[in-house]
Design a protein around this nucleic acid. Structure first.
Lengths: 334, 334
DNA sequence: TTGTACGCGTTATCAT
DNA sequence: ATGATAACGCGTACAA
């Protein structure tokens, strides 16, 4: 591989001059600049990032922590982030982490070895060690899709409680009272959305019975299917179900179809996230739209801003959600 | 940040000894080894990968080239690859590339600057410059999901022609003759699957009319929906449709539902890929299963093997597909 | 305006 | 068995 010295020799100048040219510094005669650029182009020379990082003590790399089972919502999020970061001149290094302590501590070890310029967490990790490390991390750390109670991290998210309220209120406004819940394990968004469900029901004088609520282990359509089956076994009189993610909702749709239950005539379903497949399932899913693209972009912009301006501030960015009315909820008042 | 010198001082040894300990080399007294390891642990020291790459002239990083609009099939593929590579001690650096020359040449520039230990292409790029560069690349390059005609790259894929034949033959065996095709632009798999469709029809004495075939610009469900609408406008008598990816098929399902056409009673649909949502749509999609996990793992293993053994060989690994019978195809002979 | 020399953190080589 | 030293490719302070 060609180095800056080779270019220098070929152009008949010193390595520092080549460096100055490549980094657009002043104090280079136009004539020399032109000659160097020519030699660079001719030889297809590209600076070695490893050596660059070494001396600059920056990697121009942002670490992005995501669950290894990332769903379609997170998939859209992280490709948006990657794209925006690249526009800012940063590379992205993904850290896929599983829901267990070995994987998390392994991730932590890798994080430490990478000299990252910043970190984005798309994944709410389970153990405190990671948060503790990142809290003392010299470079910016931004959470995306969730907040952290114990430490002050900058974060970008939607108001989960408010958004879930909109979903459940919508069902109630359409005449539903016996409303089931399919929630998932682990993450705070699940707890928040579930809490909101309980509160809304109570505020309308409806007692949210325990048998109306299931918590499934993960967030795949298969989990949603099984959750819905459980609900069906427990109480045949449910007229609507709030699945706290679209993927769970899609699984619920499947279970209902298999049980020959009409949607939305017999049972209505509402989801959350508005992943891009949601408008294409049968019936098209009514759901809460999270501004995925905006969340990703704001997150990327925020890390870059904090890198430039220092990580003094820890802003919370709350983005607006909205309900997308499609076909999976019946109006019992009509 | 702590360096190997700091650890050396704290342990009362030289940096070389610390290096030997950390790299599990011989010629270190057990006692010293123990002491060094203790100091390392106490201080949470982790070697700096940038410096390591600098001197070793390896980055332990594999570049993975994927389309920026990667679909669910590719999503599953690349997370499998990432996971397997990590088990082999390699990091993964993703290069998202768009379908235009600026994006590709930009990707090429980034590729050059990264001193990668290997490259995996999950994406069939459009211009030859990239293939030319990678062909002369000193480290292994493996293609996944497609082959290359002009250069001899190692590759892992399924037999597209054979697999597409299975799909279309299945429709014919179920009594379908007027079979539509929803294909996509750009990639060789689309051409291969389309070609197979034409051949199978002809071999059964059916003339594949041009109006039965649409080529949509991309591979999203929305493209599939529009493709199906076009087909519906052109010829109402189609009894089945072969959508060359599951995402297109899901969009086709949607278009049929919107047109109040029953699936599979009125129109049957068969897909290709077997992405994980395919079993959950209504009706569950009959499709060709690609061994996604195996493809990913074989690809990752192949790069690692070629890195270890030198990139002399360029094996082609053809993996078996199979047809997954679900609910979206009716048997007209019953 | 340009060149020289040094240092970034690590590993390999060679000397002890 | 351990330590000293050079080298990897680049950017920069400082000398010219």
């Amino acid at each position: 591989m060609m180095s800056i010295k080779d270019i220098a020799k070929l152009a008949g100048v010193s390595p520092s001059t080549v460096s100055r040219v490549l980094n657009n510094r002043e104090y280079v005669r136009d004539e020399i600049r032109k000659r160097v650029l020519e030699v660079v182009k001719e030889n297809g020379y590209v600076p070695n990032n490893v050596a660059r990082s070494m001396v600059l003590r920056r990697t121009f790399t942002i670490g992005v922590i995501i669950p290894d089972t990332f769903n379609m919502f997170q998939r859209q999020l992280f490709s948006t982030i990657e794209h925006r970061l690249e526009q800012f001149g940063y590379r992205t290094m993904f850290f896929f982490v599983k829901w267990n302590s070995e994987s998390e501590s392994d991730c932590l070890r890798r994080l430490k070895s990478e000299s990252l310029d910043g970190v984005i967490m798309l994944h709410e990790v389970q153990y405190q060690a990671m948060y503790k490390y990142l809290n003392e991390f010299p470079n910016p750390v931004v959470l995306c899709t969730f907040g952290c109670e114990n430490y002050k991290f900058p974060a970008v998210y939607v108001d989960e409680v408010d958004a879930a309220r909109d979903a459940v209120e919508y069902l109630i406004q359409h005449g539903h009272e016996r409303i089931g819940l399919i929630a998932g394990a682990h993450f705070s968004f699940s707890k928040l959305r579930s809490k909101s469900y309980v509160e809304v029901l109570k505020s309308h004088g409806i007692e949210p019975k325990p048998e109306w609520q299931v918590v499934v282990p993960s967030y795949t359509p298969e989990d949603g299917r099984q959750g819905m089956e459980t609900l069906l076994e427990r109480d045949k009189s449910l007229s609507a179900v709030f699945a706290i993610t679209d993927e769970l909702a899609i699984g619920a749709l499947r279970a209902l179809h298999e049980a020959r239950i009409r949607i939305p005539e017999d049972v209505s379903v509402i989801g959350f996230d508005d992943i891009d497949i949601s408008g294409f399932v049968e019936p098209a899913l009514t759901t809460i739209h999270q501004p995925i693209v905006e969340m990703g972009e704001r997150t990327a912009e925020l890390v870059c801003k904090l890198i430039d301006e220092g990580k003094g501030a820890h802003p919370k960015v709350v983005l607006p959600h909205r309900l997308i009315e499609r076909e999976s909820v019946a109006n019992h008042f009509r």
